[in-house]
Amino acid sequence: MADSQLELFEVFIRSKRGLDHKHVGSLHAQDHAQALEYARDCYTRRSEGVSIWVVKSSDICASQEEDSECFFDPSDDKPYRLAGYYRLPDPVDNM
């Protein structure tokens, strides 16, 4: 019989209040509840977190590399969206 493999979950951890949840890795679990507990056991052994998200890996929809030109390149020619694009007169050195 094939070896039963539990479901794969991705783990995101907020390391302290005020920061975003950050992807830290994955693990295997039966369901969301168990994935949360394992995330606590496996990824916060040194008080690395104050909050955990788990997401089924199969539920993540990711942008594809072949789309990256049409997704991301068009914003490369819009430097005017960045503050550094604008030169301030010296007397007004901070804005």
């Binding site: 539990l6 693990l27 295997h28 679990a29 507990e37 394992y38 056991d41 496996c42 052994r45």
Partner: peptide
């Protein structure tokens, strides 16, 4: 499985 090794150790 590995996750349980870690959980049991905790």
């Amino acid at each position: 499985y590995l996750e349980e090794d870690i959980a049991c150790a905790n």
